[in-house]
Amino acid sequence: MYENIQELTTQEQLKEAFPILNQLRTDLTEETYLHLLKEMQKDGYKLFALYSNEKIVSLAGFSWRINFYNKRHIFIYDLVTDSKQRSFGYGEKLLLYIHSWAKEQGAEYVALESGLQRISAHRFYEDKLDYDKWCYSFRKTL
C-alpha cells in the first residue's frame, strides 16, 4: 500500500477533497465549500491530505494563529477520515505529520475543537495522541 501526505493547492485537488470533507461538514455544498475555502485561504488556511493508493483517505485543515495563551500555534479546524477508511490509522498518521510540520515551522502548540457529542474522537485525541482537554468553546448565533 502506497501512502503519502501533501498540501492540496490546485483546484482539482481541492475539488477531489470535497466528498471527504463533506462527511464532517455535512451542511456544505461543493459551491459553498469552494467559496468559503477561497476566503479561508486568504487568511492562511491550508488543507493537507493523506493519500492511500492515490486516493484521498484523510484530511486536515488548519491555520496559523497567535494569541496570549497558545502563543504561535496551529489551529486545526477540520480533521476527517473517509468513513470507509476509518480504523486503519490514517487520521493518526496525518495528525502526527501535522504535529511535526508545525513544530518545524515554529509552533508551540497544535490546538483543535471537537463537538461535545464526539466521544470517540475525544478518546482518540486524549488517549492516543496525548492532547489535553483544558477549556470549553462557546459561540452565539447572531
Rank of each mutant, 00 (worst) to 15 (best):
Q13T: 02
E31S: 06
L59D: 06
N22M: 02
Q41D: 11
I66F: 09
L50H: 08
S63V: 06
E12Y: 06
E39H: 15
R65E: 12
S58Y: 05
E54N: 09
L37K: 04
L14M: 12
L34K: 08
T26L: 00
G44Q: 00
L14N: 00
Q13H: 01
Y51I: 02
E39D: 06
R65Y: 15
Q41H: 06
K42W: 07
F48Q: 11
I66T: 14
N53G: 07
T10I: 03
L28D: 03
E12N: 10
T10D: 02
L34S: 04
Y69A: 03
A60N: 07
A60F: 05
M40C: 09
K55R: 11
Y69G: 02
K42P: 05
K38S: 14
V57Y: 02
R25I: 06
Y51R: 07
D43H: 15
G44L: 14
N67G: 07
K15Y: 05
Y33I: 03
L14F: 02
Y45W: 10
W64P: 06
T9N: 13
L24Q: 06
I56D: 01
T29K: 01
E12L: 08
E30N: 09
S63N: 13
A60T: 08
F62M: 05
L8A: 04
L21T: 10
L36D: 14
T32V: 14
D43K: 15
E54M: 02
I66S: 07
L8D: 01
K46M: 08
F62L: 12
L36C: 14
Y45T: 08
L36N: 13
L8S: 01
T32Y: 09
G44D: 07
Q11D: 02
Q41W: 01
L28H: 03
L21I: 13
K15I: 01
L24V: 09
S63F: 03
E31K: 02
F18E: 00
Q41V: 08
T9C: 11
N67M: 09
Y33K: 00
K38L: 11
S58V: 08
D43G: 15
T32K: 11
M40P: 02
Y33M: 06
R25D: 09
L47S: 04
Y33G: 02
I20G: 05
V57G: 01
S58K: 07
T32E: 14
Q41F: 00
S63M: 10
I56C: 04
R65L: 08
E16V: 13
A60E: 11
L14W: 04
L34R: 10
E31W: 00
E30W: 01
E39Y: 13
K46A: 15
I20N: 06
F48V: 09
E31L: 04
Y51A: 04
K46I: 05
L28S: 06
K46T: 15
K42Q: 07
L14R: 01
N22Y: 03
N22W: 05
E12I: 12
E12Q: 11
F48I: 07
M40L: 13
N53R: 00
H35K: 09
